[in-house]
Write a protein that binds this DNA or RNA. Sequence first.
RNA 1: GGCGGGGUAGCAAAGUGGUUAUGCAGCGGCCUGCAAAGCCGUCUACGUGGGUUCGAUUCCCGCCCCCGCCUCCA
Length: 459
Amino acid sequence: MLKIYNSLARDKQVFVPINPGQVRMYVCGMTVYDDCHLGHARMLLSFDMVYRWLKSSDYDVTYVRNITDVEDKIIARAAENHETISALTQRMVEHLHRDTGRLLMLPPTHEPRATAHVPGMVALIEQLIAKGLAYPAANGDVYYAVAKFPGYGKLSGKSLADLRAGERIEVDPHKRDPLDFVLWKAAKPDEPSWPSPWGAGRPGWHIECSVMSEFHLGTHFDIHGGGHDLQFPHHENEIAQSEGAHGHAFVNYWMHNGFLRFNDEKMSKSLGNFFKIDDVLKTFDAEVVRFFILRAHYRSPLNYSETTLADAKNALDRLYTALKGVAAPDLVIDWNEPGALRFRAAMDDDFNTPEAVAVLFELASEANRTHSAQTIGLLKALGGVLGLLQRDPNVYLQAAPAGDGAGSLSAVLIEERIAARGAAKQAKNFAEADSIRAELLAAGVVLEDTALGTSWRRN
RNA sequence: GGCGGGGUAGCAAAGUGGUUAUGCAGCGGCCUGCAAAGCCGUCUACGUGGGUUCGAUUCCCGCCCCCGCCUCCA
């Protein structure tokens, strides 16, 4: 029985899908004006993990993750780069797919782009105006009248009074209430625009998610996810738009992942303390990065550093080393088997991946003790549920260092040196054998003498 | 100021009213020509002051510290 921490209820709740056996899930994806950083990776990986677990739990899952391809920052960046908006967004979408692919994420069922749904947004705004929840202003903008929507603040636990007290922005004179947010922005020169009943313009940010989720999932669906920073105002505004327009519940379970931090601060563009996925992958194996993120709980803060990532690498090495002993049979997981049972209980408890990973380590210990093909098969299969441990162990352990691998010894050369060392050992010339081993170690290659001969891995 | 999330052993990170989390690192042993890997054993814990309780890291209250949202942000 799956329990999910629902931000709306501020509590773990038993997950009951609207339609039995079926889950409809929407996640706020990327605004494509720059490469993804590790904080984005955490969000993307968290919901990839959720998607995988729901599928493993035999749900028929429709997973929608949008792409925001029209927005202030995109316009500004394109101008800065002296390129067209579509050239910029197309390139960034390619980078997004490159990065998610490397991090072993499954593609979402649908990946709608905002620019393809503008007419739907115009239609939704018209509905909101008709219901008296939105109003066009003299400047050509259209605003949402926050005070007209009774439930405003229910997701983020804020009241209108609190929000007004915390007011930090200068009031736009076109807004009736300072808290009103923009649904439609009047066109400015040299900016992309679409026709609308209020004149040429472009959509505000929040409206796209209400429209794209409805397009693919309907007006009432199961799970909506995103980074914690989207809880307010973005998700609050989505609720106001969708529930305001349709008059019924929008989303049953709201999920928010915790931040990735660097030096105990949120990693973000505005703070400038971010590491791009592409750059991190020049130093660390992508599966190590995936494992690093999955071994923390998705809602907890997670600190990134060279040390914590290196730690994750050593830990993943142990798992793959356990897999190396015996060929893992491909097996169908028997969820009544004790290890699988514990794994499932952990995942069903609000996706407790640290606990699930602990089960993996216990299986690894058991496999090291017993060399049971069954245990090794289970370890690999459960790892697969998290998108881990699917490579051939030797391919993982002997992989050239992440990045271009420049300066690393080739496998052929390593094998030659191992043969030379073997000959020296035969001749009881241990000084020579040890010197070859030391030479390889200095090049990042560790030798392991086993009953079956000498094997090697990179450290 | 309002709202929310945290402070767990050297580091990372789960969890629990009483019984080993887990990983990395350390120490001792086994194995090994010596190592590595593995196995066995082992040392460091629950921010702080009270309260409830037979018993609290785990529940309640106060305090300290950190982080986030309240403005674009995953």
